[in-house]
Design a protein around this nucleic acid. Structure first.
Lengths: 219, 219
DNA sequence: CTAATGTTTTTTGTATACAATATCTATTGA
DNA sequence: TCAATAGATATTGTATACAAAAAACATTAG
């Protein structure tokens, strides 16, 4: 019994565009040419319009009056803001994990960072990047909060804040992750939340510091 | 020099629909008839489509394949989740206020709850509801986080979580607000954030308790 | 050579037509 | 009486046409 495919063209265009943004085929600030798109994808402008509007609503795109749609570009200040937003949401998520997640799920979370020994080599570094991503995703998943989960999958903010690689070296974030897992096992929501918030705010600080350094260089 | 009106029809339809949802002209779960709408608003289906897609992206509406658009209805579980989300975001917002807000803004925040004496009468109760709304809105506003501000204005989640009246009596929430203001004045971000989170989680708990009671009644 | 102007081309925003699908209504049969 | 079916109606999803605005280009004047 295969899944019934009853999707409308709008949805297909929507998903295609999301992938193109994620893969960097469409870059921040880039203009979307509707006519060109409709030719490439072989559909009329109507489903293109619908998909673009939806993506604008989700903040993947930005609509400028009479100029069309552009891939949303985030300013430095906004990127900083995204760290804070993520800290807020994942902080609450990990607290809720302490309340709601099953022991199996917490076990699963703790296994994310098993078997790492420092310093990392090229391969294990990639593994760490992956583990990091998985861990933070699962925290939201297992929080039991369906809204957070939906947001993390459909909000341009969340996807964007997930796209950047590591802002801090694994040596620095590893113990923080371990501490969070410890708090999870203790079902200490308060502590877990605080750790997660600090985790993201530290990354924010490092990111911001890099920015000001960069500015000085370019002047 | 008046503001240049260069708005496109889509935007006008979008704003109109948002007001209709906010005012309860369109109720949760209700189906949106595109043809009817286009007749009422005197525009073609194209701008209607665009506005509906955008609103779906912002979670004000929900699109069901081949059935059209419906005003998004939130389940009890989702409403609970909204309390948690709000706690997360406003918790971070008030922390950022401690970091960033000017003394003037903090003064302004503290004035929100000045002059209330309990028990409230019918008039002062309404004043309190208003003060509550204003306070929480300004916390996000003065956090200096433009993403949180944008979210609070354009996300169906945030608007929805703001629409419900008070879940707890003013007598109960007043001292919590006072405590938050105190933390703001002390620029104690950690404390302020914790107070805000607890504030919303308490509301969540009361809301959830009311739900289970209601269920028992209806059985 | 650059700035300003006018012209052409492109692209958007909007309206409209229509087939496919879903919904509603009436009819039939158990 | 109710369920199931068939037919009629309404609504969606899609394609297409076109005016108006923006962008690109060419031309002229300083």
């Amino acid at each position: 019994m295969s899944k019934i495919e009853n999707k409308i063209l709008t949805d297909l265009v929507y998903e295609k565009l999301k992938i193109m943004i994620d893969d960097g085929v469409l870059t921040p600030g880039q203009k979307i040419n509707k006519l060109e798109l409709s030719k490439i994808l072989g559909v009329s402008q109507t489903p293109i319009n619908d998909a673009l509007s939806r993506l604008a609503g989700e903040k993947f795109l930005e609509q400028r009056s009479r100029q069309g749609y552009f891939v949303r570009a985030f300013s430095d200040e906004e990127l900083v803001a995204l760290f804070e937003m993520r800290g807020a949401l994942e902080g609450m998520a990990i607290r809720l994990c302490c309340e709601n997640a099953s022991s199996d799920h917490i076990e699963e979370l703790s296994r994310c960072f098993e078997g790492f020994s420092f310093p990392l080599n090229e391969k294990t570094y990639m593994d760490y990047v992956h583990a990091d991503k998985t861990f933070h995703e699962k925290i939201i998943r297992y929080s039991g909060n369906s809204i957070l989960w939906e947001l993390s999958r459909t909000s341009g903010y969340m996807i964007k804040s997930n796209m950047k690689g590591l802002t801090r070296p694994p040596e620095e974030t590893y113990p923080e992750h371990v501490a969070m897992i410890q708090a999870l096992k203790e079902r200490n929501g308060d502590k877990a939340q605080q750790l997660m918030i600090q985790h993201h705010l530290r990354s924010r600080n490092v990111f911001r510091a890099k920015l000001t350094k960069k500015e000085l260089n370019t002047v």
